[in-house]
């Protein structure tokens, strides 16, 4: 029983990371139609920014700075690189591919290719006893952050004017522009939100794995892509459900099956979902 509890909470912690990355990706894709390969870069930028100041500033200011830097990076990438290629989706994907290659190399040249130990606050490394299982406290931090982000995003999308524009834009971008609303400001906003969430995910991943490396973003990104596709492009709640499914499946199969079987089963889940429900759980058709 205690093993199951520990596995479930660890899987949910992983799911929280996937959700933080995937929700931004999903919004960016749903609204702007950009498959953002540079999302992993936002994650690493946030993590390294927080890592740099965490010694001198303490944990909370470091997290805030990391999130702010990642959000700024996201907004800048949209303004400088993505916007000039408006409606040319393949070129936009290619630019983010180039950016992910160059950006990771840039981080490597500054901080080195090796993993750095990420300091975590004392309360995050303590252990909580639940139903006989010794669960590290940082799992609750991850899960709590993901739930807060989910509620915050849903409230933002539901109750604010910009949230309305974004929801309408995901539904039908051309109609929103035709109604005289400049949808491009919403693009920048979505990139900034995605960047901020990715930065937060990077910092929390640093605590979860207790180390950060320039390539970390890219390896998490692939599973986040899978979560986005399973959840349905453009849907935040779909991404949340898919993240929980993927995180739990991966953790349990990896423990009870052979090494690596969990990762393979996630891909099998993706194939199954795509064959049975090509538009994903949330059911918004992916534009061809």
């Amino acid at each position: 029983m205690s093993t199951v509890v520990l596995l479930a909470l660890t899987g949910l912690g992983l799911a929280a990371l996937y959700f933080l990355i995937a929700s931004g990706l999903s919004l960016v894709f749903g609204l702007a139609g950009v498959l953002n390969f540079a999302h992993g870069l936002f994650l690493s930028v946030g993590a390294y920014a927080a890592w740099t100041v965490s010694e001198s500033w303490g944990a909370i200011p470091a997290i805030l700075l990391g999130v702010a830097v990642a959000a700024t990076t996201g907004a800048l990438v949209e303004l400088v690189l993505i916007r000039p290629l408006y409606t040319r989706h393949t070129e936009q994907v290619l630019v983010t591919v180039g950016l992910s290659l160059a950006g990771v190399a840039l981080l490597q040249s500054v901080w080195g290719a090796d993993a750095r130990v990420f300091p975590r606050p004392a309360w995050a490394s303590s252990v909580v006893n639940i139903a006989g299982a010794q669960v590290p406290a940082d799992r609750f931090l991850l899960i709590g952050a993901a739930v807060l982000v989910l509620l915050g995003l849903l409230a933002f999308l539901r109750f604010t004017r910009y949230g309305l524009v974004i929801r309408a834009g995901v539904e039908n971008r051309d109609m929103v522009s035709a109604l005289g609303i400049d949808v491009r400001n919403a693009f920048t906003l979505v990139f900034a939100i995605g960047g901020a969430l990715a930065g937060l995910a990077g910092i929390l991943a640093g605590m979860y794995f207790s180390s950060i490396s320039p390539g970390q973003g890219a390896s998490l990104l692939i599973f986040a892509f899978i979560v986005v596709v399973i959840g349905g492009l453009g849907s935040v709640t779909g991404a949340f459900a898919a993240a929980v499914a993927v995180g739990l499946l991966q953790q349990f199969v990896n423990y009870y099956g052979t090494a690596g079987a969990g990762d393979v089963s996630v891909v099998a889940l993706l194939a199954a979902v795509l064959l049975l429900r090509p538009a994903g759980l949330a059911g918004k058709a992916a534009p061809a």
Partner: peptide, 12 residues
């Protein structure tokens, strides 16, 4: 699948 979903599946 087609479009972006195809890219994602091949990536996976």
């Amino acid at each position: 699948t087609s479009g972006i979903a195809f890219s994602m599946v091949t990536l996976a």
